[in-house]
Amino acid sequence: MLEILLDNKDGNVWDLSEIVTDVTWTTTRVGRPASVDFTLIDSGIYQDRAFAINNGDIVRFRMGDVNAFYGYVFSIKTNQDAEISIKAYDQVRYLLNKDTYVIKNVTTGDVIRKIAADFNLKVGRIDDTGYRIPSMVEDGQTLLDDIEKANTLTMSATGRFFVFFDDFGELSLRDVTSFQAGFYIGDGSLMTGYDYGRDIDQDTYNKIKLYRDNKDTKKREVYIAQDSAYIARWGLLQLYESVDEEKNAAQINEMLTQLMQLKNREQKSLKIDAIGDIRVRAGMYVPIIIESLGINQPMMVDEVTHRFDGADHTMSLTLKVI
C-alpha cells in the first residue's frame, strides 16, 4: 500500500495517499538527490481550510513496511485544471550548496559528518572505509562534489566501493558489499525488457599516468602503467591525474594498480524494465540473470525510477557492472 504524508511543519500532517496520481520516485547513485514527483487531484481535502502545501514542507513516502523517501517540497505547479504538481528532494539537495573546505587526514565519513554539522543535516549509518585521505582542498565546489571526491579517492586507494545517499532523512555511507537486494532480477523474475551495451567511450583507460609535484626537488614525478595489448586493440586511452604530494612511490604505484583494474576494460551498461519492487534503489547490488546475454552476476544500480499508476508499480533500472 502506497503512503504519502505531507507535514506542514505547523502541527498538521496530511495523508495524501488516496488523492495523488503520477507518482514517481527516482534515486541516482552519484551527482543528484533522490526525488519524488506526484500530482494532487481534486478531492475533499481541498475543502479543509487548514490544508496547504508550501515549499519546504516535509514529504514522507512509504510502501508497506519499507521507508522509501523523506524529503522537502522544492517545486509547486498548478494548471488550468486545478491539478497541483509537486516535486520534493531529499537532504542531498542541500549538498548542492557551495563552500570551501581545507581538511587533512580524514575518512569519507569524517567529511560527511563535518559538512552535515556545518549545514545542520542529519547523519545516520556511516560505514568505516578504513582509509584516511591525506588532504583535501576544495574551493567553491558543491558539498556533494566534496563528498564524492572523498569517495573516489577512497575507491582509488583501496579498490572498495561505497555508496552515499539519504536513507529516509539521514545521510548514510554504505559499503556496497553489504548493500544488496535479497532477490534477483532477470529471466523469470520481475524483468519485462532490457537494453544492453558495451563501450570504451566513457570511463575506459588503458594507460594511467599519475604525477606528483615534488616541492623538495622542484620537479614533476610521473608514474605510468599501461596495457600494450589493449592499446593495440582500442588505441591509446589515457587517464592523466595528479596525486597528493604526501603520497610515497609505493602508494602511488598501488593507486596505478587499482586504477588499471577498474578502468582498463570495457564498461558494460544494462537497462532493465521490470515489475516494481520498492526495496530497489540506486547504489545497491542486485543479482541479474539474463541467459541470452550470458549474464549471471550482481550489478550495481546506477539509477532507478519507480512509477506508480493506481495498483500498478513498475521500475526502470540503469545498472553497471563492477
Rank of each mutant, 00 (worst) to 15 (best):
R198V: 14
G31L: 03
L16D: 07
M260E: 01
N54Q: 15
D199C: 08
A250T: 12
Q180T: 12
E245S: 14
T24A: 10
I53R: 14
I275T: 12
A274D: 07
K9C: 11
I115L: 02
I252T: 01
L319S: 06
S35C: 09
I112N: 07
M284S: 08
A116D: 00
S135G: 03
S189E: 11
D199S: 15
L259A: 10
K122M: 05
G71V: 08
T107P: 04
S85F: 09
D309T: 11
L2H: 06
E254D: 14
D37A: 02
D203E: 13
T177N: 14
L173D: 03
E245C: 02
S269Y: 09
S43L: 06
V73C: 04
D146E: 13
V222R: 11
S43K: 03
S135W: 06
E83C: 04
K207Y: 07
M155R: 15
T257W: 01
A250S: 15
N248E: 00
D65F: 02
V73F: 03
Y196N: 06
N120P: 00
Y70G: 05
D273C: 08
N55Q: 14
L319T: 01
I45K: 13
T204Y: 06
D7S: 06
L317G: 04
D216Q: 13
L256D: 07
V163P: 12
E148I: 10
R125C: 08
V73H: 04
I185T: 03
A88F: 01
R279L: 05
D57I: 08
Q251K: 08
R281H: 08
Q251T: 00
A229E: 15
T28F: 01
G276S: 10
L153T: 11
I147Q: 06
D139S: 11
S172K: 02
N79K: 07
R49D: 15
I103M: 11
S35D: 15
S156Y: 09
Q261K: 15
I126N: 03
V13H: 06
T26H: 10
A157G: 02
L317P: 09
Y94K: 13
I41A: 10
R279Q: 12
A116E: 02
T129R: 00
I45D: 12
